[in-house]
Design a protein around this nucleic acid. Structure first.
Lengths: 191, 191
DNA sequence: TCAAACACTTGACCTATGGTAAGAAATAAA
DNA sequence: TTTATTTCTTACCATAGGTCAAGTGTTTGA
Protein backbone atom coordinates (compact mmCIF):
# COMPACT_ATOMS: atom_id res chain seq x y z
CA UNK A 1 0.00 0.00 0.00
CA UNK A 2 1.50 3.36 -0.97
CA UNK A 3 2.50 5.64 1.92
CA UNK A 4 -0.05 8.36 1.30
CA UNK A 5 -2.95 5.95 0.93
CA UNK A 6 -2.66 4.55 4.43
CA UNK A 7 -4.91 7.29 5.71
CA UNK A 8 -7.66 6.39 3.25
CA UNK A 9 -7.20 2.71 3.97
CA UNK A 10 -7.90 3.32 7.64
CA UNK A 11 -10.87 5.58 6.94
CA UNK A 12 -12.38 3.01 4.60
CA UNK A 13 -12.04 0.37 7.29
CA UNK A 14 -14.98 2.03 9.07
CA UNK A 15 -17.00 3.74 6.37
CA UNK A 16 -16.99 4.02 2.59
CA UNK A 17 -15.68 6.98 0.66
CA UNK A 18 -16.15 7.46 -3.11
CA UNK A 19 -13.08 7.86 -5.33
CA UNK A 20 -13.90 11.52 -5.94
CA UNK A 21 -14.16 12.16 -2.21
CA UNK A 22 -10.96 10.24 -1.57
CA UNK A 23 -9.12 12.70 -3.80
CA UNK A 24 -10.78 15.60 -2.02
CA UNK A 25 -9.68 14.25 1.37
CA UNK A 26 -6.10 13.59 0.28
CA UNK A 27 -5.73 17.09 -1.12
CA UNK A 28 -6.90 18.60 2.18
CA UNK A 29 -3.99 17.03 4.05
CA UNK A 30 -0.51 18.44 3.95
CA UNK A 31 2.46 16.10 4.46
CA UNK A 32 5.10 17.27 6.93
CA UNK A 33 8.19 15.80 8.58
CA UNK A 34 9.54 16.29 12.06
CA UNK A 35 12.92 15.37 13.50
CA UNK A 36 13.43 13.38 16.70
CA UNK A 37 13.23 15.51 19.87
CA UNK A 38 11.51 18.40 18.05
CA UNK A 39 8.14 19.71 19.24
CA UNK A 40 5.04 19.48 17.09
CA UNK A 41 3.02 21.44 19.61
CA UNK A 42 4.20 23.49 22.58
CA UNK A 43 2.12 23.93 25.72
CA UNK A 44 0.39 27.33 25.73
CA UNK A 45 -0.19 27.39 21.97
CA UNK A 46 -3.37 26.56 20.13
CA UNK A 47 -3.24 23.18 18.39
CA UNK A 48 -3.80 24.29 14.80
CA UNK A 49 -3.61 20.89 13.17
CA UNK A 50 -4.73 17.36 13.66
CA UNK A 51 -2.04 14.91 12.57
CA UNK A 52 -2.12 11.43 11.09
CA UNK A 53 1.19 9.66 11.70
CA UNK A 54 2.24 7.79 8.55
CA UNK A 55 5.56 6.71 10.09
CA UNK A 56 7.28 7.54 13.35
CA UNK A 57 6.52 7.91 17.02
CA UNK A 58 5.44 10.86 19.18
CA UNK A 59 4.43 11.52 22.75
CA UNK A 60 2.05 14.03 24.24
CA UNK A 61 2.74 15.26 27.78
CA UNK A 62 1.85 18.01 30.20
CA UNK A 63 3.33 19.70 33.26
CA UNK A 64 1.18 19.54 36.41
CA UNK A 65 0.75 22.24 39.06
CA UNK A 66 3.79 20.91 40.98
CA UNK A 67 5.99 21.10 37.90
CA UNK A 68 6.09 17.36 37.23
CA UNK A 69 5.84 16.16 33.65
CA UNK A 70 3.39 13.40 32.77
CA UNK A 71 3.08 11.40 29.57
CA UNK A 72 -0.45 11.30 28.33
CA UNK A 73 -0.17 9.45 25.07
CA UNK A 74 2.38 7.63 22.99
CA UNK A 75 1.36 7.21 19.37
CA UNK A 76 3.01 5.44 16.46
CA UNK A 77 2.40 4.70 12.77
CA UNK A 78 -1.18 4.96 11.48
CA UNK A 79 -2.59 6.78 14.46
CA UNK A 80 -3.84 10.27 15.01
CA UNK A 81 -2.18 12.77 17.33
CA UNK A 82 -2.97 16.31 18.44
CA UNK A 83 -4.89 18.01 21.24
CA UNK A 84 -8.45 17.71 19.98
CA UNK A 85 -9.75 19.90 22.80
CA UNK A 86 -7.55 22.82 21.79
CA UNK A 87 -8.02 22.00 18.10
CA UNK A 88 -11.80 22.28 18.16
CA UNK A 89 -12.21 24.97 20.82
CA UNK A 90 -9.24 27.15 19.75
CA UNK A 91 -8.18 27.44 23.39
CA UNK A 92 -4.50 27.20 24.34
CA UNK A 93 -3.32 23.65 24.84
CA UNK A 94 -1.76 22.42 28.06
CA UNK A 95 0.05 19.70 26.13
CA UNK A 96 3.39 19.46 24.45
CA UNK A 97 3.77 16.96 21.62
CA UNK A 98 7.30 15.83 20.92
CA UNK A 99 8.68 13.48 18.28
CA UNK A 100 10.43 10.45 19.79
CA UNK A 101 11.66 9.44 16.32
CA UNK A 102 12.00 11.21 12.98
CA UNK A 103 8.38 11.12 11.81
CA UNK A 104 6.24 11.72 8.75
CA UNK A 105 2.78 13.15 9.28
CA UNK A 106 -0.26 14.34 7.39
CA UNK A 107 -1.85 17.42 8.89
CA UNK A 108 -5.19 19.18 8.46
CA UNK A 109 -6.57 22.45 9.88
CA UNK A 110 -9.93 22.62 11.68
CA UNK A 111 -11.46 24.86 9.04
CA UNK A 112 -10.54 22.44 6.32
CA UNK A 113 -11.73 19.45 8.33
CA UNK A 114 -15.06 21.02 9.23
CA UNK A 115 -15.55 21.93 5.60
CA UNK A 116 -14.92 18.30 4.67
CA UNK A 117 -17.41 17.15 7.32
CA UNK A 118 -20.11 19.13 5.51
CA UNK A 119 -19.09 17.95 2.05
CA UNK A 120 -18.50 14.31 3.01
CA UNK A 121 -20.84 13.09 5.77
CA UNK A 122 -19.09 9.72 5.75
CA UNK A 123 -15.88 11.39 6.85
CA UNK A 124 -17.70 12.77 9.86
CA UNK A 125 -19.00 9.24 10.42
CA UNK A 126 -15.39 8.02 10.47
CA UNK A 127 -14.55 10.59 13.12
CA UNK A 128 -17.67 9.71 15.11
CA UNK A 129 -16.46 6.11 15.20
CA UNK A 130 -12.87 7.19 15.87
CA UNK A 131 -13.85 9.27 18.91
CA UNK A 132 -16.27 6.59 20.07
CA UNK A 133 -13.42 4.09 20.10
CA UNK A 134 -11.01 6.57 21.65
CA UNK A 135 -13.54 7.17 24.41
CA UNK A 136 -13.96 3.47 25.09
CA UNK A 137 -10.16 3.05 25.21
CA UNK A 138 -9.77 5.99 27.56
CA UNK A 139 -12.35 4.47 29.93
CA UNK A 140 -10.56 1.13 29.84
CA UNK A 141 -7.25 2.79 30.60
CA UNK A 142 -8.98 4.69 33.39
CA UNK A 143 -10.33 1.56 35.04
CA UNK A 144 -6.94 -0.17 34.74
CA UNK A 145 -5.27 2.84 36.38
CA UNK A 146 -7.81 3.05 39.17
CA UNK A 147 -8.28 -0.58 39.99
CA UNK A 148 -5.41 -2.70 38.72
CA UNK A 149 -1.84 -2.90 40.01
CA UNK A 150 1.09 -1.36 38.15
CA UNK A 151 2.35 -4.90 37.45
CA UNK A 152 -0.91 -5.82 35.70
CA UNK A 153 -0.86 -2.61 33.69
CA UNK A 154 2.73 -3.28 32.67
CA UNK A 155 1.95 -6.83 31.55
CA UNK A 156 -1.12 -5.68 29.68
CA UNK A 157 0.89 -3.06 27.83
CA UNK A 158 3.65 -5.54 27.06
CA UNK A 159 1.04 -7.87 25.56
CA UNK A 160 -0.95 -5.25 23.66
CA UNK A 161 1.81 -2.91 22.51
CA UNK A 162 5.16 -4.75 22.53
CA UNK A 163 6.47 -2.43 19.75
CA UNK A 164 6.42 0.50 22.15
CA UNK A 165 9.04 -1.18 24.36
CA UNK A 166 11.36 -1.46 21.35
CA UNK A 167 11.02 2.17 20.39
CA UNK A 168 10.32 4.31 23.46
CA UNK A 169 12.53 5.06 26.54
CA UNK A 170 11.22 3.49 29.75
CA UNK A 171 10.88 6.89 31.49
CA UNK A 172 8.03 7.72 29.15
CA UNK A 173 6.43 4.31 29.42
CA UNK A 174 6.57 4.56 33.23
CA UNK A 175 4.88 7.95 33.15
CA UNK A 176 2.27 6.66 30.70
CA UNK A 177 1.56 3.80 33.14
CA UNK A 178 1.24 6.30 35.98
CA UNK A 179 4.34 5.21 37.93
CA UNK A 180 7.96 6.37 38.37
CA UNK A 181 10.83 4.96 36.30
CA UNK A 182 12.20 3.46 39.52
CA UNK A 183 9.01 1.48 40.08
CA UNK A 184 8.96 0.32 36.48
CA UNK A 185 12.53 -0.84 36.83
CA UNK A 186 11.60 -2.89 39.92
CA UNK A 187 8.58 -4.37 38.15
CA UNK A 188 10.72 -5.42 35.21
CA UNK A 189 13.21 -7.15 37.49
CA UNK A 190 10.39 -9.01 39.22
CA UNK A 191 8.81 -10.24 35.95
CA UNK B 1 -39.21 23.54 28.26
CA UNK B 2 -41.45 20.47 27.97
CA UNK B 3 -39.98 17.21 29.31
CA UNK B 4 -39.72 15.42 26.01
CA UNK B 5 -38.06 18.32 24.22
CA UNK B 6 -35.00 18.40 26.44
CA UNK B 7 -33.31 15.86 24.22
CA UNK B 8 -33.80 18.04 21.13
CA UNK B 9 -32.70 21.10 23.06
CA UNK B 10 -29.38 19.44 23.87
CA UNK B 11 -28.89 18.15 20.34
CA UNK B 12 -29.58 21.60 18.90
CA UNK B 13 -26.98 23.08 21.22
CA UNK B 14 -24.30 21.51 19.00
CA UNK B 15 -25.87 21.21 15.59
CA UNK B 16 -29.08 22.22 13.84
CA UNK B 17 -31.95 19.88 13.10
CA UNK B 18 -34.94 20.77 10.93
CA UNK B 19 -38.45 20.56 12.39
CA UNK B 20 -39.27 17.56 10.22
CA UNK B 21 -36.13 15.78 11.41
CA UNK B 22 -36.86 16.72 15.01
CA UNK B 23 -40.14 14.85 14.75
CA UNK B 24 -38.37 11.89 13.18
CA UNK B 25 -35.85 11.79 16.02
CA UNK B 26 -38.46 12.07 18.76
CA UNK B 27 -40.51 9.25 17.29
CA UNK B 28 -37.45 6.98 17.28
CA UNK B 29 -37.05 7.25 21.05
CA UNK B 30 -39.21 5.32 23.44
CA UNK B 31 -39.87 6.74 26.92
CA UNK B 32 -39.39 4.34 29.83
CA UNK B 33 -39.33 4.57 33.61
CA UNK B 34 -37.21 2.70 36.10
CA UNK B 35 -37.57 2.44 39.86
CA UNK B 36 -34.77 3.10 42.34
CA UNK B 37 -32.46 0.11 42.86
CA UNK B 38 -33.65 -1.61 39.68
CA UNK B 39 -31.15 -2.58 36.95
CA UNK B 40 -31.31 -1.07 33.49
CA UNK B 41 -28.54 -3.34 32.24
CA UNK B 42 -27.08 -6.45 33.85
CA UNK B 43 -23.48 -7.51 33.34
CA UNK B 44 -23.24 -10.32 30.79
CA UNK B 45 -26.09 -9.01 28.61
CA UNK B 46 -25.82 -7.02 25.42
CA UNK B 47 -26.69 -3.36 25.89
CA UNK B 48 -29.61 -3.07 23.48
CA UNK B 49 -30.40 0.57 24.06
CA UNK B 50 -28.73 3.88 24.51
CA UNK B 51 -30.53 5.99 27.10
CA UNK B 52 -31.05 9.70 27.53
CA UNK B 53 -31.90 10.52 31.14
CA UNK B 54 -34.71 13.09 31.27
CA UNK B 55 -34.93 12.96 35.06
CA UNK B 56 -33.24 10.78 37.64
CA UNK B 57 -29.86 9.35 38.51
CA UNK B 58 -28.08 6.12 37.58
CA UNK B 59 -24.71 4.50 38.06
CA UNK B 60 -22.73 2.15 35.89
CA UNK B 61 -20.38 -0.30 37.61
CA UNK B 62 -18.42 -3.49 37.03
CA UNK B 63 -16.96 -6.35 39.03
CA UNK B 64 -13.20 -6.84 38.65
CA UNK B 65 -11.28 -10.13 38.57
CA UNK B 66 -10.99 -10.12 42.39
CA UNK B 67 -14.73 -9.70 42.80
CA UNK B 68 -14.63 -6.06 43.84
CA UNK B 69 -17.25 -3.69 42.46
CA UNK B 70 -16.18 -0.38 40.95
CA UNK B 71 -18.31 2.59 39.95
CA UNK B 72 -17.50 3.77 36.49
CA UNK B 73 -20.00 6.50 35.92
CA UNK B 74 -22.70 8.40 37.75
CA UNK B 75 -25.09 10.21 35.44
CA UNK B 76 -28.02 12.48 36.14
CA UNK B 77 -30.66 14.52 34.27
CA UNK B 78 -29.96 15.38 30.63
CA UNK B 79 -27.09 12.97 30.16
CA UNK B 80 -26.67 9.80 28.19
CA UNK B 81 -26.08 6.41 29.76
CA UNK B 82 -25.43 2.94 28.41
CA UNK B 83 -22.43 0.79 27.47
CA UNK B 84 -21.59 2.16 24.05
CA UNK B 85 -18.99 -0.54 23.46
CA UNK B 86 -21.55 -3.31 23.90
CA UNK B 87 -24.23 -1.24 22.17
CA UNK B 88 -22.30 -0.81 18.93
CA UNK B 89 -20.39 -4.10 18.87
CA UNK B 90 -23.24 -6.33 20.15
CA UNK B 91 -20.80 -8.01 22.56
CA UNK B 92 -21.85 -8.80 26.11
CA UNK B 93 -21.36 -5.93 28.49
CA UNK B 94 -19.22 -6.15 31.61
CA UNK B 95 -21.22 -3.34 33.19
CA UNK B 96 -24.32 -3.20 35.32
CA UNK B 97 -26.38 -0.04 35.23
CA UNK B 98 -28.56 0.59 38.26
CA UNK B 99 -31.02 3.38 39.04
CA UNK B 100 -30.08 5.34 42.17
CA UNK B 101 -33.41 7.19 41.99
CA UNK B 102 -36.72 6.64 40.23
CA UNK B 103 -35.81 7.78 36.73
CA UNK B 104 -37.37 8.65 33.39
CA UNK B 105 -35.42 7.80 30.27
CA UNK B 106 -35.67 7.91 26.50
CA UNK B 107 -34.21 4.86 24.80
CA UNK B 108 -33.20 4.02 21.25
CA UNK B 109 -31.94 0.80 19.64
CA UNK B 110 -28.74 0.69 17.55
CA UNK B 111 -30.61 -0.20 14.38
CA UNK B 112 -32.87 2.76 14.76
CA UNK B 113 -29.99 5.07 15.65
CA UNK B 114 -27.84 3.97 12.72
CA UNK B 115 -30.79 4.42 10.41
CA UNK B 116 -31.18 7.96 11.75
CA UNK B 117 -27.47 8.61 11.20
CA UNK B 118 -27.98 7.90 7.50
CA UNK B 119 -31.16 9.95 7.23
CA UNK B 120 -29.96 12.87 9.34
CA UNK B 121 -26.22 13.53 9.01
CA UNK B 122 -26.46 16.32 11.57
CA UNK B 123 -27.52 13.79 14.18
CA UNK B 124 -24.34 11.86 13.51
CA UNK B 125 -22.52 15.19 13.85
CA UNK B 126 -24.09 15.61 17.28
CA UNK B 127 -22.81 12.18 18.30
CA UNK B 128 -19.38 12.93 16.85
CA UNK B 129 -19.22 15.99 19.09
CA UNK B 130 -20.71 14.08 22.04
CA UNK B 131 -18.07 11.34 21.84
CA UNK B 132 -15.35 13.88 21.22
CA UNK B 133 -16.29 15.64 24.45
CA UNK B 134 -16.71 12.38 26.32
CA UNK B 135 -13.22 11.38 25.20
CA UNK B 136 -11.73 14.68 26.38
CA UNK B 137 -13.50 14.28 29.74
CA UNK B 138 -12.30 10.71 30.12
CA UNK B 139 -8.71 11.83 29.51
CA UNK B 140 -9.05 14.61 32.07
CA UNK B 141 -10.43 12.16 34.60
CA UNK B 142 -7.58 9.80 33.76
CA UNK B 143 -4.92 12.43 34.40
CA UNK B 144 -6.58 13.47 37.66
CA UNK B 145 -6.63 9.82 38.78
CA UNK B 146 -3.04 9.19 37.81
CA UNK B 147 -1.40 12.38 38.97
CA UNK B 148 -3.53 14.20 41.50
CA UNK B 149 -4.24 13.27 45.11
CA UNK B 150 -7.59 11.90 46.23
CA UNK B 151 -8.12 15.15 48.15
CA UNK B 152 -7.74 17.23 44.98
CA UNK B 153 -10.08 14.91 43.08
CA UNK B 154 -12.65 15.19 45.87
CA UNK B 155 -12.48 19.00 45.91
CA UNK B 156 -12.69 19.14 42.15
CA UNK B 157 -15.79 16.95 42.15
CA UNK B 158 -17.36 18.97 44.95
CA UNK B 159 -16.80 22.12 42.88
CA UNK B 160 -17.89 20.72 39.52
CA UNK B 161 -20.73 18.42 40.55
CA UNK B 162 -22.08 19.46 43.96
CA UNK B 163 -25.52 17.99 43.09
CA UNK B 164 -24.07 14.49 43.12
CA UNK B 165 -23.24 14.82 46.81
CA UNK B 166 -26.88 15.66 47.53
CA UNK B 167 -28.23 12.68 45.64
CA UNK B 168 -25.73 9.81 45.70
CA UNK B 169 -24.42 7.69 48.65
CA UNK B 170 -20.74 8.31 49.44
CA UNK B 171 -19.78 4.67 48.77
CA UNK B 172 -20.48 5.20 45.10
CA UNK B 173 -18.75 8.56 45.01
CA UNK B 174 -15.70 7.04 46.71
CA UNK B 175 -15.57 4.26 44.16
CA UNK B 176 -16.01 6.75 41.32
CA UNK B 177 -13.05 8.71 42.72
CA UNK B 178 -11.00 5.52 42.88
CA UNK B 179 -10.76 5.26 46.67
CA UNK B 180 -12.47 3.36 49.50
CA UNK B 181 -15.38 4.84 51.44
CA UNK B 182 -13.10 4.89 54.50
CA UNK B 183 -10.58 7.09 52.73
CA UNK B 184 -13.32 9.40 51.51
CA UNK B 185 -14.59 9.68 55.05
CA UNK B 186 -11.12 10.70 56.28
CA UNK B 187 -10.77 13.24 53.47
CA UNK B 188 -14.13 14.79 54.37
CA UNK B 189 -13.12 15.16 58.00
CA UNK B 190 -9.88 16.85 56.96
CA UNK B 191 -11.59 19.36 54.65
C1' DT C 1 37.05 10.95 20.19
C1' DC C 2 35.70 12.44 24.32
C1' DA C 3 32.74 15.07 27.37
C1' DA C 4 28.02 15.79 28.23
C1' DA C 5 23.61 14.21 28.28
C1' DC C 6 20.63 10.42 28.50
C1' DA C 7 18.81 5.81 30.03
C1' DC C 8 18.37 2.55 33.38
C1' DT C 9 19.04 0.33 37.95
C1' DT C 10 19.53 -0.17 42.95
C1' DG C 11 19.01 0.79 47.89
C1' DA C 12 17.15 3.00 52.11
C1' DC C 13 13.44 5.20 53.78
C1' DC C 14 8.64 7.49 53.67
C1' DT C 15 3.64 8.25 52.87
C1' DA C 16 -0.93 7.93 50.95
C1' DT C 17 -4.20 4.82 50.70
C1' DG C 18 -6.00 0.06 51.46
C1' DG C 19 -7.87 -3.82 54.46
C1' DT C 20 -10.26 -5.28 58.31
C1' DA C 21 -13.29 -4.75 61.93
C1' DA C 22 -16.41 -2.47 64.67
C1' DG C 23 -19.60 0.91 66.03
C1' DA C 24 -22.63 5.22 65.41
C1' DA C 25 -25.98 7.61 62.85
C1' DA C 26 -29.49 7.94 59.59
C1' DT C 27 -33.10 6.07 56.80
C1' DA C 28 -36.55 2.74 55.46
C1' DA C 29 -39.72 -0.90 56.63
C1' DA C 30 -42.96 -3.21 59.60
C1' DT D 1 -42.79 3.43 67.25
C1' DT D 2 -39.65 -0.18 66.89
C1' DT D 3 -36.66 -2.89 64.15
C1' DA D 4 -33.80 -3.67 60.23
C1' DT D 5 -30.98 -1.98 56.87
C1' DT D 6 -28.21 1.20 54.87
C1' DT D 7 -24.87 4.84 55.34
C1' DC D 8 -20.98 6.84 57.35
C1' DT D 9 -17.06 7.20 60.61
C1' DT D 10 -13.06 5.70 63.38
C1' DA D 11 -8.98 2.98 64.73
C1' DC D 12 -5.24 -0.03 63.89
C1' DC D 13 -1.97 -2.12 60.94
C1' DA D 14 -0.27 -3.43 56.11
C1' DT D 15 1.57 -2.28 51.63
C1' DA D 16 2.25 -0.39 46.90
C1' DG D 17 4.48 2.90 45.12
C1' DG D 18 6.97 7.44 45.76
C1' DT D 19 11.20 10.14 47.01
C1' DC D 20 15.93 10.92 47.27
C1' DA D 21 20.47 9.77 46.27
C1' DA D 22 23.90 7.34 44.00
C1' DG D 23 25.97 4.53 40.37
C1' DT D 24 26.62 2.20 35.73
C1' DG D 25 26.20 1.88 31.09
C1' DT D 26 25.00 4.05 26.55
C1' DT D 27 24.09 7.59 23.19
C1' DT D 28 24.89 11.98 21.18
C1' DG D 29 27.05 15.79 19.32
C1' DA D 30 30.92 19.29 19.17
Amino acid sequence: MPEDNKLLYYINKWTSISEADEAKILSAFEPISIKKRKDLLVSGQVCNYLYFITTGCLRSSYIDSKGAEHVYQIRMDNNWIGDIDSYFTRQNSKYTIEALEDSNLLRISVDRLEQLFVEIPNLERYFRILFQKAYINALNRLSATMWETAIDRYNEMLKEHPEIFQRVPLVHIASYLGITPESLSRIRRQV
